[in-house]
Computed example of a mutant assay.
Amino acid sequence: MTDFLRLADLAVRTQGGAVVSANDESFAAKENLVLPGPAQARPDFGHRGKEYDGWETRRRREPGSDWAVVRLGMPGVVRGVVVDTAFFLGNYPLQASLEGASVEGHPPASALADTEWVPLLPLSPLEGGTANAFPVEAGPRVTHVRLSIHPDGGVARLRVHGEVVPDPRLLDAGPLDLAALENGGVVTGVSNDFYGSPHQLIGRGVARSMGEGWENARRRDDGNDWVEVALACEGEVTLAELDTSYFLGNAPGAASLTGTTAGGAEVGLLPRTPLQPDTRHRFLLPGGPGVTRVRMDVFPDGGMARLRLWGRPTGAGRAALHRRWEETALGSRRSG
Rank of each mutant, 00 (worst) to 15 (best):
M1H: 14
T2R: 15
T2N: 15
R6I: 08
A11I: 02
R13E: 12
T14I: 08
T14S: 15
Q15R: 14
G16H: 03
A18V: 10
V20E: 06
D24A: 07
S26F: 15
A29P: 13
N32M: 13
V34D: 02
A39Y: 00
P43E: 08
D44R: 12
E56Q: 13
R58A: 15
D66M: 04
A68Y: 04
V70G: 01
L72C: 07
G73R: 03
M74H: 13
P75W: 04
G76K: 00
G76V: 02
V77S: 01
V78Q: 00
R79M: 09
R79K: 15
V81D: 00
V82T: 01
V82C: 00
D84R: 00
G90N: 14
P93F: 02
P93V: 03
L94D: 15
A96D: 00
S97I: 03
E99A: 13
S102W: 04
S102L: 13
S102H: 13
E104C: 08
E104K: 11
H106P: 02
P107G: 07
P107T: 06
P108K: 10
S110D: 14
S110F: 08
A113F: 12
D114F: 10
T115N: 09
W117I: 07
P119I: 05
L121W: 00
P122F: 07
L126D: 00
P135M: 02
E137N: 11
E137T: 14
A138I: 02
P140Q: 12
P140L: 09
L147A: 05
S148M: 13
R159N: 02
H161A: 01
E163H: 06
V164T: 10
V165Q: 04
V165Y: 03
P168R: 05
R169M: 06
A173R: 01
A173K: 01
P175G: 12
G184T: 09
V187Y: 06
G189V: 10
V190K: 05
D193H: 11
F194G: 07
F194C: 12
S197I: 06
Q200F: 10
L201G: 05
R204V: 14
R204E: 14
V206R: 15
E212M: 07
G213V: 01
E215P: 03
E215A: 06
E215I: 03
N216F: 03
R219E: 04
R220A: 11
D222I: 09
N224W: 09
W226K: 08
V227C: 09
A230S: 15
A232P: 04
E234D: 12
V237D: 03
V237T: 07
A240F: 02
A240Y: 00
L242A: 06
Y246F: 15
L248Y: 12
G253S: 13
A254I: 04
A255H: 03
S256I: 06
A262Y: 03
A265Y: 11
E266S: 14
L275S: 05
D278E: 11
D278N: 14
R280Y: 04
F283T: 05
G287I: 06
P289I: 08
R293N: 10
V294G: 02
D297T: 10
V298S: 02
F299A: 04
D301P: 05
A305W: 01
A305N: 03
R306F: 10
L307Y: 03
L309G: 02
W310T: 01
G311W: 01
T314E: 08
G315A: 14
A316P: 03
A319K: 10
R323G: 10
R324Q: 13
E326F: 11
T328P: 05
A329N: 12
S332H: 12
S335T: 14
S335A: 14
S335D: 13
